[in-house]
Design a protein around this nucleic acid. Structure first.
Length: 516
RNA sequence: GGCAGCGUAGCUCAGUGGUAGAGCAGGGGAAUCAUAAUCCCUUGGUCGGGGGUUCAAAUCCCUCCGCUGCUACCA
């Protein structure tokens, strides 16, 4: 596979000040599924995630904790590194913005932008609230009778000016619009693309890209009074991880990234600032930014004050890992907001997983185990019904591949489940339990067709449910070397006579605990 | 306020000019290989209100109502 098609995808780097919740888990999960899919489909994949560790909030939190910022981030970034294990992510790298490789990369990018005349020293002026430590726009403020300016938070603001470096974002308006126009799939979903375009069309101002009010960040080369704006720092991680400023090696291989997956709240940074920074530095912008939606919990916004923030570990413990992964990607059209509810989760687990898929596997493998000497049966000639079911299974890959390429995970699963339904109907129509008495060879053929269909299903569900799919493939006697998409289709078909282990349930029903 | 989008069966949604759809939930039946799982049939909607264009509108236009998103420097 060396030198073959590559696929580079990234999650945002998560702000270490946050505690990982279902939203973080969701973003990385989507990437994990894409990464696993592309690997199985023969791509040379690089899947990156990491943590954003600079900024004023981190500095303050560290202070409050009475430890140095670096020690603080070492500690809290562990929460996100632990999430990798909890959710069974397959990332190839985990970047931290406090790593030397990243500092070097950001400073190199800065220098490049400065040399290109894209960054200049000016001064940033605005209404600043000392209490909130934030600037406010003129239109956000109310004026008291005595002429004082009051922020929405009620804090008094004062006019301050401080030196700041600016990025000439205003100069990139037209080139960005042209870029969006020439790359209609750069921003997905399409509704979000329209928002970005209308934002850019409304006019861009130069962007303040340095700060002097706090210290925890990457110093501006040659001017230690300034540290870099967190987004310039953070976004650059995507090229740091492929070796920038070295543009040979991995950079040449993987850049531009195929996909930046982001939550809708940070779309602008990725779809406006980032391509502008890159183009200004003479580098290629990424191929796509996908902005996904947010989860509500039982119909309510997730918030600390409501106390309904769900930790990923909690979901995994309660419902199971692959069940959780399945639910998050099946329940909601990817890109939309969605609601997480216990009832919906149980519905998915028991309906789709236990009853439809799990029971299909169980009923077929049990019959084979009991009636075919625990071996893959030897098939006879295929009937039209046999070929129809096998044909549906064979036809899945191109469909699923097309949906994956537009991040339509729900449609991927819909398509796979359509074949699960076909297979269950086929079992009932063929009634192998009756054939057992009337036509045992035909029973063998029917069970073979089913086993072969299940092989396809399990290979294709691997990206979403790696562990459960592996269990099914184990039970079909399919070793790890024959689980790639290259083995789909008749060429990789099961061989009659292959001994099979005793079947075990893969997706147990979710049974409610009796209320104490 | 401006711009954009949405409002279709009890629930979640698909359907963008040609006889109203899916999944789940509800009702009835079949089967008994299987995790009491499966399969078949079925109830249910004047497609937010009103007006217009058209032989024909959920689909196009106007208007009203309701909801949502975006409207830059905390990330």
């Amino acid at each position: 596979m060396a030198g073959s098609k590559t696929y580079y995808l990234t999650t945002p780097i998560y702000y270490v000040n946050d505690v990982p919740h279902i939203g973080h888990a969701y973003t990385t999960l989507a990437c994990d599924v894409l990464a696993r899919f592309k690997r199985l489909d023969g791509f040379d994949v690089k899947f990156l995630t990491g943590t954003d560790e600079h900024g004023q909030k981190v500095e303050k939190s560290a202070q409050a904790a009475g430890i140095a910022p670096q020690a603080f981030t070492d500690k809290v970034s562990q929460n996100f590194r632990d999430l990798v294990g909890v959710m069974n992510y397959s990332n190839d790298d985990f970047i931290r913005t406090t790593e030397p490789r990243h500092v070097a990369s950001v400073q190199a990018l800065w220098t490049k932008l400065l040399d290109a005349g894209e960054i200049y020293l000016g001064s940033y002026a605005g209404w600043y609230s000392v209490r909130d430590e934030a600037f406010y726009g003129e239109d956000e403020l109310t004026t008291t009778p005595t002429g004082k300016k009051i922020a929405p938070t009620g804090a008094e603001c004062e006019w301050v000016e401080e030196p700041s470096y600016f990025f000439r974002l205003s100069a990139w308006q037209e080139r960005l619009l042209e870029f969006y126009d020439k790359n209609p799939d750069f921003i997905l979903p399409p509704g979000k693309r329209n928002e970005v375009i209308s934002f850019v069309k409304s006019g861009l101002k130069d962007l303040s890209v340095s700060r002097t009010t706090f210290k925890w960040g990457i110093p501006v080369p040659g001017d230690d009074a300034h540290i870099m704006y967190v987004w310039l720092d953070a976004l650059t991680n995507y090229i740091t991880a492929v070796g920038y400023p070295d543009t040979t090696g991995e950079y040449a291989e993987y850049w531009p990234a195929d996909l930046h997956m982001v939550g809708k709240d940070i779309l602008r940074f990725h779809a406006v600032y980032w391509p502008a920074f890159l183009m200004a530095a003479g580098l290629q912008p990424p191929k796509r930014v996908f902005a996904h939606g947010w989860w509500t919990i039982e119909g309510q916004k997730m918030s600390k004050s409501l106390g309904n923030v769900i930790a990923p570990e909690q979901l995994v413990t309660t419902y199971g890992l692959d069940q959780t992964r399945y639910f998050l990607l099946r329940e909601v059209p990817f890109g939309n907001d969605g609601d997480f509810s216990h009832a919906a989760m149980v519905q998915r687990i028991n309906g789709n997983l236990a009853n439809d898929y799990g029971n299909l596997v169980q009923r077929v493998l049990s019959m084979i185990n009991k009636n075919c000497g625990a071996q893959v049966p030897q098939p006879g000639p295929f009937t039209e019904a046999d070929n129809r079911l096998l044909g549906a299974a064979h036809a899945l890959l191109p469909v699923v591949r097309a949906e994956i390429d537009v991040q339509a995970f729900h449609k991927v699963l819909d398509a796979i489940w359509a074949v699960v339904g076909d297979a269950n109907r086929y079992v009932d129509e063929q009634a192998p339990w009756a054939l057992k008495k009337t036509d045992p060879p035909r029973m063998g053929t029917v069970l073979y067709v089913l086993a072969e269909t299940i092989r396809h299903l399990a290979i294709l569900t691997q990206p979403v449910m790696p562990a459960a799919s592996a269990k099914i493939l184990d039970q079909l006697g399919q070793g790890e070397k024959v689980r790639g998409f290259g083995n789909l289709g008749p060429a990789g078909a099961l061989t009659g006579g292959t001994p099979l282990p005793a079947p075990q349930g893969v997706f147990p029903r979710f049974v409610e605990e009796p209320k104490a």
